[in-house]
Design a protein around this nucleic acid. Structure first.
Length: 577
RNA sequence: CGGGGCGUAGCGUAGUGGCUAGCGCGCCUGCUUUGGGAGCAGGAGAUCGGGAGUUCGAAUCUCCCCGCCCCGACCA
């Protein structure tokens, strides 16, 4: 039983000045967390209990699925990360340190290497597989910009699991099991979420999905189809465009278009001098980029920007992607800035990528590679041919769903979980093999699965609060019932303690406000701020032998006889779960 | 790492060259109060982020450093 008379807790009346997002403000105000440094937080008793509750739900679901818990140190030697090259590759986000002898260590940002090595040390037969093991542990990442309180910290609690299989089919099954376990886990946490297609990116591997909890303060943008439910991370969104029919398009014609280095200025001139009906979407934009040290050109419709993240996701192996600068133009004197077209790309020796929207057979207005000149009726396949197609254009609300062509919506969310099929990258690098039925050595294939535990606490808070405070789901709350005793006599306090004791005896956790000094108003405000789902008030109505029951979420209040308190609370709790 | 903002008591803040750094919340003591963040009286608590400089005089002006927040780049 938590007794507020002695609980290590101080609630704050004002929002902390350094907090912006609701979860951060409320968790600090209600006395769950305190900031220590940028992206580093301490947990006070209420916070610890809440975090544990989330952790335990995750643990239970992992165990139920047959996954086994292990635990690694956060402090790790350099060697393991050397074998996969991540000591270097991880870059400045890795916390590196030295021991007294000058040996290199790191604070684990993620534990693929350690898990792989652990399995390598124990197992060597196909008969031992499949295996899925997990841990719940603090991770350390020196984020360039920690933000939003506990949503993106530099030290945070994460549940990470890894599956080990002999075959790709096995990996597929392990993956699905994990996906199912995540669904039940997040349902129990009462999170609203979407399972979204993601790109596996630098980690390599074939399939990857993110669990995204929609909320306005989320930092991830994703696409959702309101009709068929298709959901994808913006990077993983694909564009389906049918080829155009260019058979009736007249021959390419050069136009005199002085002073039109931008799309807007070009459209104005086109409409005034060359007939109406032109929009930005009629024009073809040639965006020049440096991919590592190689110049490339990307074709997108003139009304769209290039989305560098999307483009990079489609160009495996490219590490740095940036737009052309003056110095780059200087090195390519043939390129007439503002009047570039793909027709002469061969001459410049630049690889031309086209967004799928620039489909074969489509006709465009684009630069004529001469100052103050553009060309119209420039047809893909006739007047130019891209070297390759790649998703490059920005995604917009209203773009078509790749599954059913309905207009998609764009939403923001917090990434609470990520599952992906890693494949054999780590097993290969670290030599994790087992003998198969034929006595032949086989490289194991892996999956990796993460849940941000502390982030989930923030995500729940973000999805469940109101003007007066937090509103926890039953299983997450620091207690199921918050009993407030008011008045100056002993009776309400004795009665409240009696009810609390009986509830605890029946397995219902209780927080009891047995403070004598604060006025009733203070206690009500605190109870609402702290956000325990059921509030019981023992006070004024005790004169008629009654207590008051409140539903924190709905605000509903009802009075019941003291004798019926236990059953009434139990019933209310049952209705909430 | 680029751009912007900020740093005064546990929390929120006022104070832009002048006297003892002010207020609210919280905290302590006493009395009165006790169903919506009570009232009165008294009190504790701050090297004004740090350092250097300008000045008769610096929270206030200058320089350097540190820290924090927001936008962007980045982010299993």
């Amino acid at each position: 039983m938590l007794r507020m008379s002695s609980l290590f807790l101080r609630t704050l009346r004002d929002d902390p000045a350094d907090a912006e997002v609701p979860s951060h403000k409320l968790l600090v105000r209600a006395g769950y967390i305190r900031r220590i440094a940028a992206g580093i937080y301490s947990w006070l008793p209420l916070g610890v209990i809440t975090l544990r509750n989330v952790e335990n739900i995750i643990r239970e679901e992992m165990d139920k699925a047959g996954f086994q818990e292990v635990h690694f140190p956060a402090l790790l030697p350099r060697e393991a990360y050397e074998a996969t090259n991540r000591w270097e590759e991880y870059g400045p986000s890795l916390f590196r340190l030295q021991d007294r002898k000058g040996g290199d260590y790191l604070l684990g940002p993620t534990h693929e290497e350690m898990f792989t090595l652990m399995v390598k040390g124990e197992y060597s037969s196909y008969k031992d597989l499949p295996l899925t093991i997990y841990q719940i542990q603090n991770k350390f990442r020196d984020e360039a910009r920690p933000r939003s309180g506990i949503i993106r910290g530099r030290e945070f609690v994460m549940k990470d699991s890894y599956s080990f299989d002999l075959t790709d089919e096995g990996l597929g099954i392990s993956y699905e099991k994990h996906r199912d376990a995540y669904i039940t886990t997040f349902d129990r946490l009462h999170l609203k979420y979407n399972i979204v297609k993601a790109v596996s990116g630098a980690m390599g591997g074939s399939k990857s999905e993110e669990f995204l909890a929609p909320c306005p303060t989320g930092e991830d943008t994703y696409v959702l189809c309101p009709k068929c439910g298709f959901a994808a991370n913006v990077e993983a969104m694909v564009t389906k465009v049918a080829p155009g029919d260019a058979s009736g398009v007249p021959a390419l014609e050069e136009l005199d278009t002085p002073n039109t280095p931008t799309i807007d200025s070009l459209v104005d001139v086109l409409n005034s001098k060359f007939g109406g009906g032109f929009t930005g979407a009629s024009t073809l934009k040639n965006v020049l980029l440096m991919a590592d040290s190689k110049a490339i050109s990307v074709l997108v419709p003139g009304d769209r920007e290039v989305d560098l993240k999307r483009l990079q996701a489609g160009l495996p192996g490219v590490e740095e992607l940036r737009v052309f600068e003056e110095a780059d133009f200087a090195k390519h004197p043939g390129l007439v800035k503002g009047y570039i077209g793909p027709q002469d790309a061969g001459k410049f020796g630049i690889t031309v990528y086209a967004d799928p929207r620039v489909a074969p057979g489509t006709s465009w207005v684009t630069g004529a590679n001469k100052k103050d000149r553009h060309a119209r009726n420039v047809v893909n396949g006739r007047d130019f041919t891209p070297d390759a197609y790649v998703e490059a254009a920005e995604i917009r609300e209203g773009d078509s769903c790749p599954e059913c062509s309905t207009a998609v919506v764009i939403d923001r969310a917090i990434e609470i979980g990520h599952i992906f099929q890693l494949g054999r990258k780590y097993a290969d690098a670290l030599g994790l093999t087992v003998l198969d039925q034929n006595g032949k050595s086989q490289v194991v294939t892996m999956g990796s699965y993460g849940i941000g535990v502390s982030r989930a606490v923030a995500a729940i808070a973000e999805q469940s609060y109101d003007e007066i405070g937090l509103v926890w789901p039953l299983e997450v709350a620091p207690a199921k019932v918050h009993i407030v005793a008011t008045g100056k006599e002993d009776l309400p306090f004795d009665t409240a303690l009696d009810i609390a004791t009986k509830l605890e005896a029946s397995g219902i956790t209780v927080m009891l406000d047995d403070r004598r000094d604060p006025s009733a108003g203070v206690k009500f405000k605190d109870a609402e701020l702290i956000g325990i789902p059921v509030i019981v008030v023992v006070g004024k109505s005790l004169a008629e032998g009654k207590i008051e029951l409140r539903n924190r979420k709905s605000g509903e209040k009802s009075e019941v006889a003291v004798g019926d308190a236990i059953s009434a609370v139990t019933t209310l709790i049952a209705s909430l779960s």
